[in-house]
Design a protein around this nucleic acid. Structure first.
Lengths: 217, 217
DNA sequence: AAATGTGAAGTTGTTCACAGCT
DNA sequence: AGCTGTGAACAACTTCACATTT
């Protein structure tokens, strides 16, 4: 998405750099695989290779969490994983809503990869909830009139936005007014939001286009 | 994908910075909307706002393409769009394959958003092509044994990788050996590839996790 | 007057080189 | 000996200030 697009509207809670936070998530995934294979210790070199970064960068990133390695040996897999989780994880296990169940929205509902990471899509919304869709849905699909009530009922703080460009700003406004603090935006526009709201952008078409640019002719 | 993850394995073809290339795609999308609304001229301030960047950054980015604005006036929408297209677009209208038709792969096949940007998924591959899937597929779904022949037949240069982590490296090797130069990777590992191959990463779970980190408690 | 184009300054992120533990 | 931790050097990216053009 990669890349994909990102935007963070305000200062981070702590002084951990934006990009480091991002990579910590990656490290955590690598550690989880190591743990599954019952590997107990890992060097910065090995872990960095698995995460696709340089060893020095990994070590620098980890210094933001404190000192955790054993010199001459490496890092304890379980301990390091817990360490990262405790920094990243306070906000996890969150309910999320998805707004806009067209092509992409349906696709995202179909995808179950959010759940293992602690995010549950509790409801989906669409202007035409009864429109025929080719896939069976696994969450309640509600009309837009139910948006505000559902958000407040479940104390929703995060939303996935997959509506068409034309509707994105208006829907964003409603989400923000109803208390949403973070939006994962798949719409191909950049919605205007207040300072306290964070928007991360994902645009698969741009990712492909970007990839194609970097191919040699 | 914002983020989402990215990795570019080699020097860019020209001297346009990585991040600028990325933003040029965004500018192009904004220009296309302006064009659709029959707006003929746009200032760096207006276009930058639509793209979610600062005006000076937009102007600096455009510098890499040459001088195109009229001082005191702004940019010609059509002309600027063509300009950007001609820089980004040489590699577009490309056939792409998708490997790994599980949850996420199905979701991506369902999504038709690649096509307007000139990418066509010509075939999908899976280890179990006959496994029951909940959605109807719109492209041929073939077994992995057909991978190499299809790639060479269609002169495929780009692939979307959505296989499980355990299979990702092996599939990547086969893609690379069969001549694939660019991979949009949704698998939660970083595959090792030769220098000349470019991999862009997209990880939706990490995007959500990252978003959640930046919410205030 | 209004807006672009751009060198220079500032900021952020990455890598190096090596000191310091185990 | 091996590997981490980190200040310092380096590189990339962003923003500013303002000259320049229409």
């Amino acid at each position: 998405m990669s890349c994909i697009l990102r935007k963070v509207n305000r200062a981070a809670r702590s002084e951990i750099p934006r990009k480091t936070v991002y990579r910590l998530s990656q490290y955590l995934r690598c550690l989880q695989r190591l743990k599954a294979n019952e590997i107990q210790t890992v060097s910065s070199e090995a872990l960095a290779k698995a995460a696709g970064v340089k060893p020095t960068q990994l070590r620098k990133d980890l210094t933001y969490l404190g000192q955790f390695g054993t010199r001459g040996l490496g890092y304890d897999v379980v301990q390091l994983a817990e360490m990262i989780t405790s920094h990243l994880g306070t906000n996890r296990l969150q309910p999320v809503v998805l707004v806009g169940v067209g092509n992409l929205g349906s696709a995202l509902l179909q995808y179950r990869g959010f759940e293992p990471e602690g995010f549950e899509i509790v409801a989906a919304f669409d202007q035409m909830p009864d429109r025929h869709r080719e896939i069976p849905l696994r969450v309640p699909l509600l009309g837009m009139d139910r948006l505000e009530s559902t958000l407040s009922e479940h104390h929703i703080r995060m939303a996935i936005l997959s509506v068409p460009a034309a509707a994105a700003q208006e829907v964003t406004n409603r989400l923000v007014d109803a208390g949403v603090l973070g939006i994962l935006n798949f719409a191909p526009i950049v919605p205007v939001v207040p300072e306290h709201v964070v928007v991360n952008h994902v645009n698969l078409a741009i990712e492909l286009e970007n990839l194609s640019y970097f191919l040699n002719d």
